[in-house]
Design a binder for these strands. Structure first.
Lengths: 200, 200, 200, 200
DNA sequence: AATGAATGAGCCTTCATTCAT
DNA sequence: CATGAATGAAGGCTCATTCAT
């Protein structure tokens, strides 16, 4: 991202980002079209290159922004006192679902990012974003452990990784069964999860 | 597919198909590159068009071939006498896992196909392939029902659809947890599944 | 045609159109080469696609432009008072000849267009252009009839069609006898024409 | 043409030539497709290259054959005693029309050849074929002059050239007015022609 | 800084011609 | 000699990126 972009008025920035998110939500990285973004944001194609070095740079910026927004929407959970792990876990997933419902474009965008194949140009995005998300939860969990709200015997990184992937699993499942009611499904899922943990 | 391709020596056909599967396993339809396939198969770019009308025709042929191979690898299950549905279901998933392990390229390819967005050129592939697979299992299940090996009260199509989506879910899960032992995971999954059915 | 083309400087537009007319005057539609046009106009191949959607769109634009130019060069005849039909007819042909002499490239181009075979991509151009030209003369003749300068008993459309085809015949003849003096030939032709009308 | 072609059975030769004439009657030189000829003649594509050096060589062979056939169909006129030039001229045109009616494919083919643009690969075919045809008539006319059946004051070459182009003019006219009865039209045309000669 | 025209690499596809069997 | 698979040059078109205003 170039400094030029930051100097833009909030409105312009917002319109531009919405257009860009929309484009990368509808098309994967290779298929996404800079011209279409410019058109949709009602700016000149050349302006995009005043704001960002190139397509890749814009894409990575969007990823970072989307993750930040999602994490901000979730982080407040960790501010509250949570008596046990299951309680916390449920809230995370609940919040995840809520965010996806309220931000369908971002949700599609982030799903696309997670599906992006290993690729010479972008590197292994899947791994990259996984690590990023895991790191976020790891910090949250560590904070909880410091407050003795989560068992300190559990490895924070492992648990973080587990939470991240689990949430992805829920999203994937809902994509496959789009008619399923998310809230009811989440409940069933958590029940299964609870039972599964007991079994294993 | 053109007759020219069928007349090719088995070796040439194999090398070509491997190259093509590899390409469409690494890249989605739009990003896949005919030139790269030719290079990888050590033939001239023009030769590809002696074998197939165009990119799309090649792609659809590959889909059909991959599905056929997978179904052949699985169909033998239905020849044996299976005492109950759970037994059969377990074997299907077991066989699915085995096939994916033994044919990693085909597995990636079919996964890509299932992820292909709805698209003017290709139509709704996701729906198409889903129907194709469902039909296959529907026939198998109907045969079992004729032999009274599966409860005839169950609607064959619904059950078939369920099996297909369920298998896809397992594959997806294993993609997310690549380090998990597939066999152990399958067992856990099936146990959950059994319990889930009791619960719901 | 895209707006980009219209915004170009007159000089650039002129050079481009000259190159394009030249190309389609030397080669038929299928053989005409976008790369050659770009080279001749000293622009990048891609620029052609900034100006026009595709080859066909460019071709149709050129046809329309050429017809317009020719019609403009001829239309002033109808502003003058012409005492009789033969007088008018002679002037039309005279003007046609003059235009072809002064615009040899356009003449070749329009001849090529009229020779273009019926074709899935372009449709029946011969019929299309014939209709276009006939319509132009039809209007002119109707105006003359309104001023009582041409016998109102004559069907304007039929006469228009006759004029168009007749002019095409003259052009064809001159193409076959390139050394013939056009003016002298036109006179002979008109004399024959006059006699022919008396005979038939 | 290669000797291989001559050694072919008459039937095979005929089928091949018919296919080739058909192709070059339907498409101009550049658009004509060797593969389509082979397919139509039910031989292998490679065989075409056993018979002819290349596309150009085949094309020129076809031109020569078609001209020969047409000339043979007409030449018998000159064997008969014709009292005057107009008589002969009428018979030539009559015979030309007859030939075109009986050999529609050859007629289309030869028309295409005459319309072929100047072209780096083929050279100026229009001029070439014109000269060829002119030479033929020139010889015929000279023979008539030797028998004192045509005025020896007339330059044989000029008259020959005139005859050739005149016939082309008739063909062109009939193409533009396809509903016109050729025989009736020819009569009108010749009457005009006779009058025209008196005038000039 | 904004604009949008200019660029050219890259892709799919066609087809005359060659070559191995 | 027949066959038809193999070849590769060429052409239309797209689009990220640069550049001149």
């Amino acid at each position: 991202m170039k400094p030029t972009f930051e100097k833009l008025s909030t409105q312009k920035k917002t319109i531009f980002l919405e257009s860009a998110f929309q484009e990368f939500a509808l098309y994967d990285y290779a298929q996404a079209n800079i011209g279409r973004i410019a058109q949709s944001a009602q700016i000149a194609k050349g302006s995009v290159y005043q704001y960002f070095e190139d397509k890749k740079s814009l894409y990575f910026y969007l990823i970072q922004q989307a993750q930040q927004k999602k994490q901000q929407a979730i982080s407040h959970i960790f501010q509250e006192k949570n008596d046990d792990f299951f309680n916390l876990f449920e809230k995370i997933n609940q919040q995840n679902l809520l965010f996806d419902e309220q931000n369908p474009v971002l949700q599609k965008f982030l799903y696309n990012v997670s599906q992006e194949r290993h690729n010479e140009e972008l590197g292994n995005l899947h791994e990259k974003t996984l690590k990023q998300s895991t790191l976020f939860f790891q910090k949250m969990i560590a904070q909880q452990q410091a407050k003795n709200l989560i068992d300190t015997n559990i490895d924070a990184q492992t648990l973080a990784f587990f939470v991240v992937n689990h949430s992805a699993g829920i999203a994937e499942f809902l994509k496959i069964f789009p008619n399923e009611n998310p809230q009811i499904f989440l409940k069933k899922w958590l029940t299964l999860f609870e039972k599964a943990l007991c079994i294993s």
